[in-house]
């Protein structure tokens, strides 16, 4: 057993856990934060993506102990005091989710992708940059639209992609 401490969505947590517990299960089973999902166990599907110190990471193949002392944000922390994040608004508005299982990881990846670009995204940016997330329901069509839309809101004033 190991004591693992981290800041999750701004709250300090500390738990004594088995040495081999994965970050995804630390969140789901130790903290009861079941918004982060596990779809494949092999870091292929991206359902488990969270941010560690602001960068997206697949929590199903990361030991909780590896992020000891880090700041972790999850889907539960994406909305700000009840105000939805632009990516959440865009996903709902454009029907970018159906069963919703891939959605938390999908949105966490998208936020990192958008943030990392510093400008609104093109369809090509999204299709290449989101390649590590799988969805079985939507054929990606509406997810692509939603991420582009959110990228415009998040980078309002940064100029459009063609100009960048």
């Amino acid at each position: 057993m190991t004591i693992v401490s981290m800041r999750v969505n701004g709250v300090e947590v500390s738990r004594e856990v088995p040495d081999n517990i994965l970050l995804a299960y630390f969140l789901r089973e130790e903290l009861g934060m079941t918004g982060t999902h596990v779809g494949c166990d092999t870091s292929q599907c991206g359902c488990c993506v969270v941010h560690v110190d602001g960068v997206s990471l697949k929590s199903c193949t990361t030991l909780a102990a590896q992020v000891n002392g880090c700041s972790v944000s999850t889907i539960e922390g994406l909305a700000n005091e009840g105000v939805l994040h632009p990516i959440q608004k865009a996903f709902a508005a454009m029907h970018a989710l159906q069963c919703g299982f891939c959605t938390p990881g999908m949105m966490m990846s998208a936020v990192d992708l958008i943030t990392g670009h510093g400008r609104p995204l093109t369809e090509e940016d999204v299709r290449e940059g989101m390649e590590g997330n799988l969805c079985r329901c939507t054929g990606y069509h509406n997810i692509v639209k939603a991420i582009i839309t959110a990228s415009h809101e998040m980078h309002a004033g940064a100029g459009d992609a063609q100009a960048a």
């Binding site: 079941t34 999902h37 889907i75 994406l78 709902a92």
Partner: peptide, 15 residues
């Protein structure tokens, strides 16, 4: 827009 989405986009799904 779907009624389902509010819980699914905020991590409150019930799988």
């Amino acid at each position: 827009q779907r009624k389902e989405d509010q819980r699914l986009i905020t991590g409150k799904g019930r799988f």
